[in-house]
């Protein structure tokens, strides 16, 4: 069960709010101080991805962020874009990053996934159980308990 649940309209301005809330809950949950920058970045990347997908498909639906501190600190970022949009999450090799033919969107998506994969040891991307959409689930250890 979520400790804190946040839903926001898919606008870039709200991603910062999600980051701030995510880090505040992480700190309270007992995530190590030295991991908080990574938590901030990862939640931001997952939310940015969700906002981009909703905008790409003209979906006004809310993006949901659920934070739970039961045994560890887990964050689920849930979008409602078609599942096929999630396919293609791939880390780009260095020689392709500055390639002229690579679009800005493809570059940002590839770099965003590289950051998620690089900063989150326990990362899962899977379809939501009901309806279209994808859930990005990230887990960090906590110190207390």
């Amino acid at each position: 069960m979520a400790t804190v649940r946040l839903s926001f309209s898919p606008a870039p301005v709200h991603v910062r709010t999600a980051r701030l809330v995510g880090v505040a809950v992480a700190r309270r949950a007992g995530v190590a101080e030295e991991l908080l920058d990574e938590v901030r970045l990862a939640i931001g990347e997952a939310c940015t991805r969700a906002v981009a997908l909703h905008n790409q498909y003209n979906l006004p639906d809310l993006v949901t962020v659920e934070m739970s501190d039961s045994d560890s600190y887990s964050v689920r970022v849930i979008d409602h874009a078609p599942i096929e949009a999630s396919v293609g999450l791939a880390k780009l090799p260095p020689d392709e990053l500055a390639d002229e033919s690579l679009t800005d969107e493809a570059l940002t998506t590839g770099v965003g996934f590289a950051l998620l994969a690089g900063f989150v040891d326990d990362l899962q991307v899977r379809p939501v159980e009901d309806g279209p959409g994808t859930e990005v689930r990230m887990v960090w250890p906590v110190r207390r308990r």
Binding site: R40, T48, L97, A98, D104, L107, T108, T109, V111, G112
Partner: peptide, 16 residues
């Protein structure tokens, strides 16, 4: 203080 993939994409775009 904070830099994400969108910002990195802008920097790559400027370099190109």
């Amino acid at each position: 203080e904070f830099l994400d993939s969108t910002g990195l994409g802008v920097l790559v775009g400027a370099m190109k």
